[in-house]
Nucleic acid binder design. Structure first.
Lengths: 207, 207, 207, 207
DNA sequence: AATGAATGAGAGTTCATTCAT
DNA sequence: CATGAATGAACTCTCATTCAT
């Protein structure tokens, strides 16, 4: 809950919630999503947050740190969501795959904006952060892959190219944040159901 | 075949191939893909092309024009590929969906680099170009959707949510350019086969 | 007295006198006069002001704004000077013409530098500012013309071509800033007397 | 009649009239007048002349040379005009002053465009040309001044400040090119008459 | 906890000019 | 007589960042 970006980066103890710090991350999230990392200037962010440029530097030590904080925050959220979903379910591969898909859809809908940033702007992370993100990305891929492979091994999934299957499922889920309209008429839970069906079909479980 | 970006932007007739103009588009393509639009400076592009900054301006009237040219070129290629594929096939929805998927996979592999650019950097196109690209994007979606809907109508596809099906298929195919390794051991044709299978499963045709 | 160009262009209230902002307008005035608008680079201005290029952009939003500010300032000064002169004099056309000529000479001597800029560099003003300046120019012409016409009507001026008379008087006064040497031996007040005589002769009042 | 700018600057023998060379000087004259020296690019000139950039360099060795040629041409014209006028008149100061004024007005109307350039853009001449122009300017001033002084000495002019008188007369005449409209309804000859009257009044000869 | 003033580096773009053909 | 291709320097302007207050 307490994230790096809520407290001044150089005095990491004090947590003045709800003030300037928050406005900045909100503004940064929106603008990075709209215009990308290089397309967004730190002045623009400060202006949209209604603060001075110097105030931004009080809360964040650099543009990169502000940016990386957003992404890290969001990715951590994803893993917490996955963990929670898997904790509450048995060991049947169908059930497990469904849980992961549901967690992914949920995340892509709930964190639509940061999600888009993380997908498109990774290359702008400095090596340090980039590597950590790459590891998390791999971890997510393994989560899917292990479940699929296990299903194939147990004979409940019928799937000649499990790697492609995993890629297709992930790609489909990840794309959601690019088109989902929170004001539209498909509820997140319904959407999750539909993507579970799609995922199961891809691994050869005809719904 | 003859593309806008091969000739000086102010005399759009002549085609001096294999010269400075070409080197520039090649360099631009690579760098935009690696670092994005705003992350790439036109000095970098000129340097990689082995030309001076001013030479770039001899061939292209602006960074934007160079950028938009690349994307337009690539997108036109996609549509030519689709058209050709559909021309050579019957009217069975399975056959048609397979043809479109194959064309899409082919394009995403063949034009891996521009493809990534087009997907991630649309927002950096100026309105004029952006709109044209949006229209083409819609046209591509319709190509998929119409085929799927027809399949459902004829009863050969079994698919409760054809819009999500289309989105999943497109997302899966589009993602290819993000991970495909031309030096890897999966031939494009094989890859296409695997994605045709995935697509058909998504629309309820159990391969 | 307080002019737009003394405060950062984006917070047009505060007036930090005697600081960087002032140095810039001083430098700009001199250089624009010496080399003209296009002949003066913004780097030159910053250097002469002893500031960095970026500091200039802290105080002024663009070269044009800095330029237009100078001119506007100076032209406003002219009109204040004329108004004051006319307020303190009766309604005799001779007295009034003398007052306007005196105000004009005074201004051309006092604001020698900007005066030259305004005369030679109008065409480099962007439409918006240019139009406002044109209107002020017309107003000045009318000030002279009305006085002359009234003198003719009352029979105190003898003048067959009052428009040419006005043009000649204005041209003569305006040219002063091109040759006047503040270190020379003609005091501004004496100069004004001489030009009053010339003006009156032009309208047929033999001094 | 044959001027420097009509023949290629590096092969000063051949004179192919009426072709590219002429178009260039015409275009240059217009653009320098409209936008000033620094505001006019050599590309703009070539384009307006309907020639390529390289063609311009065939006819002129540099932007400066093209520019200086225009001005020199025009100033020489002025002196030829003055000489002719003075040759045809007696030695009465009134007659001589009238002749010079007439020549000046004639020139300012006939060579309106270059005239404006010469007045406003001298500072952009390189030292070499600038000095020559300054000398000519002085010569012109002397022409007026000598005549006025002679008139005063002979007692036909009544004029306490003959230098200011000269400046006023010159300024009035020179300004003509800034406002004269060749399509207006004042014929050059009439205009000259009016300015002769003005000049004589300035030196105390009541018309 | 926040600001106003300043900076150096680098952005995209245009300039006058050259030269082989 | 004229062109197409190229260059290096300079242009206006924006960037992320700093620091005294």
């Amino acid at each position: 809950m307490t994230t790096a970006s809520d407290s001044p980066s150089h005095t990491p103890g004090a947590i003045p919630r709800g003030q300037g710090g928050d406005a900045l991350t909100v503004a940064a999230r929106e603008m990075f999503a709209e215009r990308g990392y290089h397309g967004t200037s730190i002045r623009d962010i400060a202006k949209r947050a209604g603060l001075s440029l110097s105030a931004l530097y009080y809360w964040h030590s650099s543009k990169q740190e502000l940016f990386a904080g957003l992404i890290e925050d969001s990715v951590n959220d994803y893993f917490r969501t996955c963990d929670a979903a898997l904790r509450d379910c048995g060991d049947d591969p169908r059930e497990r795959l469904a849980a992961i898909v549901r967690a992914t859809v949920d995340y892509r809908v709930r964190r639509r904006v940061e999600s888009t940033i993380a997908a498109r702007e990774v290359r702008n992370l400095e090596p340090e952060h980039a590597q950590r993100l790459a590891e998390l990305r791999d971890a997510a891929a393994r989560l899917f892959q292990d479940t699929i492979d296990e299903g194939v091994a147990r004979g409940v999934f019928r799937c000649e190219h499990p790697v492609e299957a995993r890629r297709a499922i992930q790609a489909a889920c990840n794309a959601i944040s690019q088109w989902y309209d929170p004001e539209g008429d498909v509820a997140p839970a319904d959407l999750a159901d539909r993507y579970v069906t799609i995922a199961l079909r891809i691994v050869g479980v005809s719904g």
